[in-house]
Amino acid sequence: MINITIYRTESGKIQSFELSGHALFANRGKDIVCAGVSAVSVGAINAVHELTGVTPDLEHREDGFLRCVVPGGLPEDVYEKVQLLLEGMIVSLRTIEETYGEHIKITFKKQEVE
């Protein structure tokens, strides 16, 4: 199963997200759940970089783990654009979860620090 954790600040803004695990929907190279989650998450990170100039802090491993952290200290207008792009990612991931819930689980957690 792909586990996705979205970390939000106390005010509800996206601070970071993590993906881990494998969908195991189909054999490697034919797994549409894995491909969908990868396309949506990496596409969102690329959109953040391309459209806002912000480079999130990333950790990516060969075992399927991906962690993305929104950097602090961004100007408010840029921060809001980053948030909108990441909220769009969540909408797409939840759509995948609705159909393939036995292969993907999204969890939301609140950070205690703003």
Score class of each variant (00 low, 15 high):
Leu19Tyr: 00
Ile104Met: 13
Ile4Tyr: 01
Ile6Lys: 04
Val82Ser: 12
Val37Asp: 06
His60Ser: 08
Glu87Val: 15
Cys68Ala: 13
Asn3Trp: 03
Ser16Lys: 00
Phe17Thr: 02
Asp31Pro: 13
Cys68Arg: 00
Glu80Ala: 15
Val78Phe: 06
Lys13Val: 11
Glu98Leu: 02
Ala26Gly: 08
Leu66Phe: 07
Glu97Asn: 13
Val48Thr: 04
Thr9Lys: 09
Arg8Gln: 13
Ile96Met: 08
Leu85Phe: 12
Arg94Val: 09
Gly72Ala: 15
Ala35Trp: 01
Ser16Thr: 02
Leu74Tyr: 02
Tyr79Trp: 09
Glu50Ser: 11
Asp77Pro: 06
Ile96Leu: 08
Glu102Met: 11
Ile2Cys: 07
Thr55Tyr: 02
Ser16Tyr: 03
Lys13Glu: 14
Arg8Cys: 07
Ala26Asn: 06
Lys110Arg: 15
Leu84Cys: 06
Tyr7Ala: 11
Leu86Glu: 09
Ala35Gln: 07
Val54Thr: 09
Asn46Ala: 08
Gly21Thr: 11
Ile90Cys: 14
Ser38Trp: 01
Tyr79Asp: 14
Phe108Asn: 12
Ala26Val: 07
Val113Asn: 14
Ser41Lys: 01
Gly12Cys: 10
Lys81Met: 12
Ser38Cys: 05
Ile4Glu: 13
Glu76Tyr: 06
Val33Glu: 02
Gln83Arg: 09
Glu87Pro: 07
Leu86Ser: 12
Arg67Phe: 03
Phe25Glu: 08
Lys105Ile: 11
Gly73Phe: 13
His49Gln: 06
Ala39Val: 03
Ser38Gln: 04
Leu51Cys: 05
Lys81Phe: 05
Ser20Met: 10
Ser92Pro: 06
Gly88Trp: 11
Val54Pro: 13
Gly72Ile: 12
Val54Asn: 04
Leu74Thr: 01
Tyr7Lys: 05
Glu62Ile: 03
Glu10Cys: 12
Glu62Ser: 06
Val42Pro: 10
Val82Trp: 03
Asn3Phe: 03
Gly29Pro: 02
Tyr7Gln: 10
Val48Gln: 03
Arg8Phe: 09
Thr99Phe: 00
Arg61Pro: 01
Glu76Gln: 09
Glu76Arg: 06
Leu24Met: 09
Ser38Ala: 07
Val54Ala: 05
Asp77Ile: 12
Ser38Asp: 02
Glu114Arg: 04
Asn27Thr: 07
Gly72His: 06
Ile2Ala: 05
Ile2Phe: 07
His103Cys: 15
Pro75Ile: 10
Ala26Met: 08
Glu112Tyr: 09
Gln15Ser: 09
Thr55His: 03
Ser11Asn: 15
Ser11Arg: 06
Phe25Cys: 09
Gly73Trp: 04
Leu74Cys: 10
Thr99Arg: 15
Gly64Asp: 03
His103Asp: 13
Arg61Thr: 14
Thr9Met: 04
Leu84Trp: 07
Gln15Trp: 05
Thr52Met: 08
Arg67Gly: 00
Met89Ile: 13
Leu51Tyr: 12
Ser92Thr: 10
Ala44Tyr: 12
Thr95Val: 07
Gly101Trp: 10
Asp31Leu: 07
Arg67Lys: 06
Tyr7Gly: 08
Ser41Gln: 03
